[in-house]
Design a protein around this nucleic acid. Structure first.
Lengths: 256, 256
DNA sequence: CGAAATTTGTGCGTATGTATA
DNA sequence: TTATACATACGCACAAATTTC
């Protein structure tokens, strides 16, 4: 069977991107140009471009020229990211970003609410029991970077005194650790899916880029201390797990 | 600003899905029906449906009715999946699947080739040096499940005798382990992106579902023993990391 | 800085092809 | 085989945002 017109146009543009003829950041030819050059209707051209956008290769917006998407790459070191053994008052996020010469900031919010069903299940609290929620939206410059929501059993938060809306700045794992709840185990779940419109807006996610969602349930001895769910726009993030001893060999992991 | 027509239609259908009025597996009303009911053109309806498809909420295909997507969920236990301490001749995949009453199978292929650049870098071999490649495509029933490619330094493969195209069935980590290369450390990278057309075809991935890619570099003492890259269609997979001791509390992690 | 040109987004109509039911 | 439903493809017009002058 012959490939369709729009498939042919898409393949042509795709190969231009993959070969580097169209480099990240470059303008993609306009709909009109492609239409004229290949003598196809604008509908056909849009069909082709839509495919490339869905593949995450290009980005577009009303009035803007289409561009070949460029991808940065931030690393989330899952094993160490929330370690209590780091300088006071810093997130792993802020320290990693500033050391790379980037301006990082966070929006912080705290509230007490009835937990979503899946949170209640993992924290083993009754579904009508309240939990303390800490919400962090992280930025690099003006760009949203990740969004994180943590849930704590209310009893635990009360015991350690972070149940008041007065906010305790970064370092809840540290507070837990210093009060006899050092984490002894973590259970991480990683899934990926396309963002909802609300998530797209909040995290400024273009079409064709998925969300990675890391859900960590942490344990101290026999106590479940927290559930933290982090949403990462997948075009800017990589999640790393360094396990065991690999330091003798220094694995080289730049890019891709 | 007033939302556009297609945005309104999309929002309406989305809320029907989220509320459960349209359940997973249900037929979505046809383009013609929606067009008549809301008195909008078919182009507008298609615009709305395309958004929902890009969000991964519905699936479509020429001639078929659109359906609300249903998602299974298979768990990849990253820490234990490739442990050498499992019964001979099984992968974690086959054993987990068959114990759940599912028919699992694999397509296996072995070859020797010049490694991609990122593989050479991680394995620390010269980019013109050959590596042994083992390729596995896993199925549940007739449905592709995941695709995995492993790379081994040729010298190591020769030493352990799995460098001939004669194929060694599952259990390379076991062979390594039994010959003095028990893994002492792993370095995992997890990224997510939309699949290329080739990947979509091979793994049968519908529009609106991302790929999760897990790249593991394994180390035994001072030797880098392998690089394994696994591609998971994100609608059917969850990657889990169980770290430390959490067994006293048995975290409840069904669904979502 | 403001106006004009460009570019993409939305929206209508119509027709034909093709896979599925 | 027939009917249905989606995919592709053409034409046109205007709106909205950005880019360029």
């Amino acid at each position: 069977m012959a490939p369709t017109l729009q498939a042919r146009v898409a393949r042509l543009l795709r190969s231009m991107i993959e070969s580097g003829e169209l480099a990240p950041g470059d303008d993609v030819p306009s709909e009109a140009e492609i239409s004229r050059a290949h003598e196809v209707s604008r509908v056909t051209v849009r069909g082709a471009l839509r495919q490339l956008e869905a593949e995450g290769l290009i980005e577009s917006g009303q009035g803007r020229k289409r561009r070949v998407r460029k991808i940065h790459q931030y690393d989330h070191h899952a094993v160490f990211a929330e370690s209590p053994d780091r300088p006071e008052g810093t997130d792993s996020f802020v320290s990693e970003a500033t050391s790379a010469g980037l301006s990082a900031s966070t929006d912080f919010e705290m509230r007490i609410e009835v937990p979503p069903e899946f949170v209640a299940r993992r924290l083993r609290v009754k579904s009508d029991e309240l939990v303390v929620v800490r919400d962090v939206l992280r930025f690099i410059g003006n760009e949203p970077f990740s969004q994180q929501t943590s849930y704590y059993p209310r009893s635990l938060a009360e015991e350690l005194g972070f149940d008041s809306p007065g906010d305790i700045k970064p370092g809840t794992t540290r507070v837990l650790s210093e009060n006899g709840y050092r984490e002894t185990g973590t259970f991480d779940e990683i899934v990926s899916r396309m963002p909802s419109p609300a998530e797209s807006e909040r995290l400024v996610i273009g079409a064709g880029t998925p969300l990675m969602i890391l859900t960590r349930t942490a344990v101290s001895g026999r106590t479940i201390t927290r559930l933290t769910q982090t949403k990462f726009p997948a075009d800017r993030h990589r999640i790393l797990y360094e396990i065991g001893n690999y330091e003798d060999v220094a694995i080289d992991v730049e890019e891709k």
